[in-house]
Design a protein around this nucleic acid. Structure first.
Lengths: 346, 346
DNA sequence: AATTGGCACTCAGTCGAGTCGAGTGCCAAA
DNA sequence: TTTGGCACTCGACTCGACTGAGTGCCAATT
């Protein structure tokens, strides 16, 4: 069983190891931390910690290094999030304050977070599945092309071009707009998607040109709604991985690939279990199902209203969890406030 | 002066070095290439090549390695682009054929190119400065928000939300649409941008609400047009750099950073000088002004009509120029054809 | 004049022995 | 339970010897 002091020793080991990148020995601990006991005592504690699989010695007779389990205990029980400096806080707020639309806000968020932590920052777009479609607009572009525009109450706007079987006239467009609008407007994205499929299986009445056009438009709308339901990520700081390369035993290739793929990270972030404060961490081996074993992901929920969306960061397992968790929490906090504040303007 | 055979020796050195990643010696050359002369003769030639700064010996008595200048001569005079296999060609065409809109087409293009070469693929968006604005659409979103949509004849559609000083009614929207349309429709993006500024300096008549709204909308339109004029890049395969890391003496950090920044690569690609076939290469040190010294960029123009746009790739100086140039050329070719073919549908 | 075989020379890479020292585990004493 | 002492381990570093690929040069050959 690990004593109270044993846990303090673990904390010291994690902190020093993150600091120095070198296995830390009993002597180094008594030097750098005021434990008031001798090195031999620390050694006994370390032997226990090793029994518990919280630390490990890379080879006989060298210092110890935290295991993934050790980091986990540190994060769960030992890390005290050290609050950001006021300079940092004001830097974040003023930087985010200048943001324009949602895209810009999220882009600024990741930049701020990567700046703050020196790690890869990630933010998930708020999920749009529960958003409601408020407007549908159709614009005839000439020829067989019709521009379809969808707007949701969360402020997301998207457009797509439909190729229709016949060129619609001005009045046709108005009719189409009403018809498509009836299917969508006022319904959530998820519902709308459903309703579009139903409207399509009904099929056009043969020979009725407008029906054929409407179907073509609906098909495009369906595709676009599907895209709405897919979550997206915004990231920044991928280059910082190259700087931290020494922290990875293997190649950073899997990491860069995950960043480029996005979908892996998306799943990973979605499946993370948050604590009561909305913070979550996935450490080292815990990411094995996602093909990442030497990396940790820290994340926090933000913007509780739309639910599910997260902001976080990705870095080597050997990272400064205290600072980084604090940074994630702070950024999530400001981002949430930002979204609440001017909810009406988006 | 370098003899004809000397150049063949240079070619052999470049090819073998790219192949083996090891300095190549005179013996290896006579073994792998049928020169019909002895190693001593090759050595003499190599001495000349070294005098001309085309190759260099990393240390006394090891094989030679091409210099940047050597690669340059190879690319300009010696590389014969080896055509793609028919399997590759059909893979490209069928993959690009499935593309939807322009975004999708370019995304597929970079994926195809990175697949083909194993390098980082880059494509510049066609410049929209000369595109003409064909449609302006306004949608009242309720409250002070008005959705502004711009469409150009190149098929680019973009939208933005304007915050206006008063909520416009249905008829106001129609009036506004006509008014804004008069400023933009039928003019190129560059002209439109100009005309918007002029319309704004005229200023609203005081007290006329519609004028104030129109100005707010025009300001947003101006911003959006500005965004049109900025070129953008789409990239893929950044992760492959991690695999090729051994090919870089220094860190890959500057490369990843350039990829993330985009603007550096954009300038680099814009300033490259193309040969008569539209192909261009920038090798190693030649990229020094852009902070890249161990990398080469190969590029090709595509879609001559809109002018200026390029597709290309980025990789270590020690790359297979023959294959990669051929791949870039082929992809540019198919991309151009794609854009011409269904010009009407975009 | 170009090519070739021969030869001395250079130097990175490798291997093994020797040394150093940080750090451990264990034990007996406090 | 803590502590000082001590033998032991083992990675990291250094040094020297050796190896071998490859060069430059030169005299002989074609």
């Amino acid at each position: 069983m690990v004593s109270e002091r044993g846990l303090q020793v673990l904390r010291a080991i994690v902190q020093d190891y993150v600091d120095t990148r070198e296995p830390v020995g009993s002597k180094a601990i008594v030097d750098r931390h005021a434990f008031g006991v001798s090195a031999a005592t620390i050694r006994n504690d370390m032997a226990l910690l090793e029994d518990e699989d919280l630390i490990v010695a890379p080879h006989t007779s060298s210092g110890r290094v935290p295991t993934d389990k050790g980091y986990r205990v540190f994060v769960d029980h030992l890390a005290e999030l050290r609050p950001l400096s006021s300079a940092q806080r004001s830097a974040i707020t003023s930087f985010l304050d200048e943001a324009g639309d949602l895209d810009d806000l999220l882009a600024r968020t990741v930049r701020a977070l990567t700046q703050l932590t020196g790690q890869v920052a990630i933010v998930q777009y708020p999920s749009f599945a529960r958003a409601n479609v408020t407007h549908v607009e159709l614009v005839a572009l000439g020829g067989p092309r019709v521009l379809v525009i969808l707007v949701t109450d969360t402020g997301r706007v998207s457009q797509r071009i439909a190729l229709v079987p016949a060129e619609p006239g001005e009045s046709d467009i108005a009719l189409l707009r009403a018809r498509v609008g009836a299917v969508l407007v006022g319904h959530s994205v998820a519902e709308s998607s459903q309703r579009v499929s139903e409207a399509l299986t009904a099929g056009p009445r043969p020979g009725v040109v407008l029906d054929a056009i409407a179907d073509a438009v609906l098909r495009v709308v369906g595709e676009e709604l599907e895209a709405f339901r897919q979550d997206r990520l915004v990231m920044a700081g991928a280059a910082t991985l190259a700087k931290r390369e020494q922290d990875f035993r293997g190649s950073i290739y899997p990491l860069l690939e995950a960043i480029e793929e996005q979908v892996t990270l998306l799943r990973l972030m979605s499946e993370m279990v948050a604590d009561e404060k909305g913070l979550s961490a996935s450490i080292g081996r815990e990411n094995e199902p996602f093909g990442l074993v030497e990396a940790s992901v820290l994340a926090s929920r933000y913007d509780g209203s739309t639910g599910g969306a997260r902001v976080g960061l990705l870095g080597p397992t050997r990272m400064d969890y205290s600072s980084n968790l604090a940074a994630v929490r702070a950024v999530a906090h400001y981002l949430t406030r930002m979204l609440e504040d001017d909810d009406s303007s988006r």
